[in-house]
Amino acid sequence: MDLFSKVMGRQTSSSKSIAKERLRLVLVHDRSSISPQLLNDLKEDMLKVISSYMEIDMAGTEVTLSQDEKSVALVANIPVIKLNRVQCGR
């Protein structure tokens, strides 16, 4: 495989399926009242809550809406750096 087609990333998926995926995602946002800004606020609030339970990688965290056939899911990918030790009563 020559370098050019590698750079273009053509082997893995057809441009049609990329288009479909991108379209689905953009429509999830368009159709709901969830703006990227709102999603970001939600992410920050979530991180605040979660970080009082465990040490997480704030920069590596991703919060997105995703859609498969019929349902929409809120997907959060939050890398955990360290789980806090068990403390009394917890």
Binding site: S14, S15, K16, S17, A19, K20, L23, R24, L27
Partner: peptide, 15 residues
């Protein structure tokens, strides 16, 4: 469409 470089009809009516 045949080469997978254009969304086909079913994709669009589905979405």
């Amino acid at each position: 469409v045949k080469n997978g470089d254009m969304m086909d009809i079913n994709d669009m009516i589905d979405i």
